[in-house]
Design a protein around this nucleic acid. Sequence first.
RNA 1: GGACAGGUGGCAGAGUGGUCGAUUGCGGCAGAUUGCUAAUCUGUUGACGGGGGUUUUUCCCCGUCCGAGGGUUCGAAUCCCUCCCUGUCCGCCA
Length: 423
Amino acid sequence: MLDINVIRDNLEALRAGAAKKHVEVDLDRLMELDDERRRLIRLVEDAVADQRRRSKALGKLSDEERQKEVASLGELKEVIKRDEESLASVMVDFDALMLRVPNFPAEEVPEGKDDAENVELYKVGEIPKADFDRRDHVELGAHLEILDIERGVKLSGARFYVLKGAGALLHRAVLEFAYQHMIKKGFLPMEVPLLVRDPAMVGTAYYPGGEDQAYRMERDQLSLVGTAEVPVTAYRGGEILDEAELPIRMVARSPCFRREAGAAGKDTRGLYRIHQFEKVEQVVLMKNDEEASYEEHQSILRNSEEVLQALELPYRVVNVCGGDLGVPHVQKYDIETWMPSRGNYGETHSASRFHDFQARRLNIRYRDESKKKRFCHTLNNTVVASPRILIPLLELYQQKDGSVVVPDVLRPFMMGLEVIRPS
RNA sequence: GGACAGGUGGCAGAGUGGUCGAUUGCGGCAGAUUGCUAAUCUGUUGACGGGGGUUUUUCCCCGUCCGAGGGUUCGAAUCCCUCCCUGUCCGCCA
């Protein structure tokens, strides 16, 4: 959410920003609603002040005067009630529209309407050539008996899977490796609720707009999170922090649930697009400083690159274009890891910078040196998401004989297993 | 799930229809006192919104906020309803 005053003062810049993001938002209507809202607030408050004064003065009046005054106040009460109802109805529309006003995209965000126009910034690692025909992860997984998609679908439907044996171990190993990597860097490990109330979903800007992508337990009014970003970012919601506490760097490992509505028929093979996966996510809460925020964005991007480099997986970093940005974003970098079966890089990480957009919705503030309250800045990035990362891991580490070598850094997390072979 | 008791300012804790935004204590901040510290004394001390003023800071006026939302009333922290949360006991349960 943006400050209404900032919106008023930068209306044209915001229009341009929304256009860059290819987001439709009726800012003229917002201005009308804001004018009406301010007018009604003044009207109601002046009337209430009058009502209070006259009500208090009732005791000093004679019986006859009091009777007349009470009758007159009764009429005033009706007027106030009517105006309050008008205000409430304007506020409903105003608040709903405010939640849909997109954040300003950064200068360096490229123009473009969808992910095809994301701009590659750099590549790391050579794409290895194999002197044999590689199997894709689905075939390989079946051959090694570590991945069972058929029975996953039997249990839960399309886009579900079962990992077993060394597959289950590899999944947990890559997550644990990433988790510990972040803890060593000073991030605070967190275990958080995965079912959250609406304010957490709205605060992180998944709602409104993303309702179709989330599993919502209507009976309990809770949503299964699609990322630990939601509970971890919302964790300090409503609080006023000490500046000395900042930045707060947190890391959480959690299951993630996504409906993938609208993706029917897309990426149907294998582990790429699934309803349930696990992710290690880094989240930063920091002071309200655009330059520091930018630096932190670079820093959380590097943290994840370190994980891919330790796994020796080739990847590239892209600067996400306006049309592929979400409503809350200032800027986003995706990391795409080389996936032989796709013959291309596939998205494995997403590093986001929001300025105070989420913090304003979540009401996370701190007192700065001059004791002034300011909204924090928030950022986050994937550290690793599995099983999607198992696609390049299995496909690139496979040997001619159909076995898969376990990357060195993961062996300690796999009870020393060095090579995955059929049982 | 059932029964009971509660939710008041950073914390503790008064207040049961009318100068209550709220007694008091602790904490915080400022000052006094004292070689320093501690102790003591004095003062001060919330959030959000609207308007004015300044437009960096300070300031002034008004409104709202006693878990949330609704209701009764000329007037609600105080009465009523719904929901949320906490505690205790019972039931169920990984």
